[in-house]
Design a binder for these strands. Structure first.
Lengths: 211, 211
DNA sequence: TGTACATCAGTGAACGCGCGTTCACTGATGTAC
DNA sequence: TGTACATCAGTGAACGCGCGTTCACTGATGTAC
C-alpha cells in the first residue's frame, strides 16, 4: 500500500482534533472545510472521503472536545493525593492559562451555547457526555455514589464553568483574576461544608419557594 | 415629515432588539442582514442607513442584551421583599422557562463564548457591563459594599450562569430539572452561610495552594 | 397661494466573495493470471 | 517474470448559493421664494 495501514484513520483523527480546537475557538461557523484540510496538509476535495458532510465533522469535533475534557480531569484527579483530588481539578481549571486557551480548554464554557444549535443527534450525545463528566467529578467527592455527592458535583461544575466564562468575559486584567480566585474558593465550597461538622443546613437544604 | 419625529430611531431600536434575540439564539453568525430587515418590515438595502456595518449592529445587539439582563434583575430585586431579593433573582433565573428561552434570556450564558470573538471595542464594552451586573447583584447581598459582598456576587453569578448552561446542555428532561434545582440552592449558598453564625471558614477562606 | 427644489427613509437590482459540495482525474501500490 | 487491471487516498477545477455591501432611484413631505 501507498500508505501505512492506519494512515487514513490517522488523517481522520487529525482533522477531527484540529476541528475540535477551532470549534471551541470560533464556534461551529468557524470551521471551514478548506482551512481545515490545509491545516492537515491536504486539499479541500479530500474532505468527503473522510466525512459525509461538514455537519458530520462538527459532531465528531464536539464529541472529541468533551471526551478530551473528561479525560484530562480524570488524569489530574488520579495524579493528586487522596483528599485533594477535587481541589486539584478545580485549581487547575480556574487559571489564567486555561482562561487564555479556549481552543484547548474545557468544552463546557466554549461549547455550552454552541451545542444548543447543533443537530439533535449531537445534542443528545453531548448530554450523555455531560452525564459522564458529572459522574467523574462526583467520584472525587468525599462520599462518592451518594445523592449528595452528585448534587455537589453539579454545583461545583456549574461554578467552575461559570467562573471561567466570567473570567474570560472580563479580559485578562485584575478584574479577571479576581473572578478566577473567587471561583476557586466557591467551587470547592460544597465539599468544604461537608468536610466540616454538619449544621443541619446541608442535609435538608431549604429551598426558597418563590420559583 | 413623512414619518413621525422619532421614526428612524424607533426603527433602529427595533432592529437592534430583534438582533439581540437572534444573537443569543444563533450567535453572531446567525444574524443575517436581509432576514433582520425583513423581520423589521423593511428591505435589506435600508440597513446601511442605520448602521455602518453588520459588525456595528452586532456591537449594539451585545450591549442591548446585557443591559436588558441587568435591567430585569434590578426590577425583580426591587419587587421582592427585603431579605428575599437575591433569592428572587436566583429562583427566577434557574427555571425551565428561562432555560427554554435563550433568545430572550440572560446574556451571559448565551453570549459568554460569543463575546470573545467580537471586536475589541465590543469586548471591552461587555466587560464593563459585566462589572455593572456584579455590582447590581452585590447590592442584593446582606452587607452590600463590602469586599465579601462582591466576592459572593461573583460566586453566585458564576453558579447561576453555569447551572443554566448545564441545564440547557442536558436538554429538558429530569436530568435538566435536577441541575436547575441543584443550582438554585447552590447559588444562594454563600449568602446563606453569611446569614448563619460565622464559623471562621468564611472570613479567611483557605484556598488550596496547588494552583 | 403656488411652484420649484431639498430632504431623507426606504427600495431593489447588482456585484463580489467565500464556502460547501461534486466529480473526473491522478498516481502509486497491490493483485490476478 | 511480466502484464493488465483494481484499489483508493488525495487533487483541483467547477458549480451553486447565500450573504454583506453598494448605489442609483423613488416618492412623500418640508421649505424657500
Amino acid at each position: 500500500m501507498r500508505y501505512s495501514k492506519d494512515h487514513k484513520s490517522e488523517t481522520h483523527a487529525r482533522i477531527v482534533k484540529n476541528a475540535s480546537v477551532l470549534l471551541r475557538e470560533k464556534g461551529a461557523d468557524g470551521i471551514g472545510v478548506a482551512d481545515l484540510m490545509k491545516e492537515a496538509g491536504l486539499t479541500h476535495g479530500g474532505f468527503y472521503a473522510h466525512f459525509n458532510s461538514r455537519d458530520a465533522l462538527i459532531g465528531e469535533a464536539f464529541a472529541h472536545a468533551m471526551d478530551q475534557t473528561t479525560h484530562r480531569w480524570r488524569k489530574r484527579a488520579e495524579q493528586a493525593p487522596e483528599g485533594q483530588k477535587l481541589a486539584s481539578v478545580v485549581n487547575g481549571y480556574l487559571t489564567p492559562a486555561h482562561r487564555d486557551d479556549v481552543g484547548n480548554g474545557c468544552a463546557l464554557p466554549a461549547l455550552g451555547a454552541e451545542v444548543l444549535r447543533a443537530n439533535p443527534k449531537t445534542r443528545k450525545a453531548a448530554a450523555l457526555k455531560l452525564e459522564e463528566m458529572i459522574e467523574m467529578v462526583s467520584d472525587q467527592m468525599p462520599s462518592p455514589g451518594t445523592k449528595a455527592a452528585r448534587r455537589d458535583a453539579i454545583a461545583t461544575l456549574a461554578t467552575m464553568l461559570g467562573s471561567l466564562m466570567l473570567a474570560r468575559m472580563a479580559g485578562t486584567g485584575t478584574f479577571s483574576s479576581e473572578i478566577l480566585e473567587t471561583g476557586r474558593s466557591a467551587a470547592v465550597r460544597p465539599v468544604e461544608q461537608r468536610k466540616a461538622p454538619q449544621r443541619g443546613l446541608n442535609k435538608a437544604r431549604s429551598r426558597s419557594t418563590t420559583a
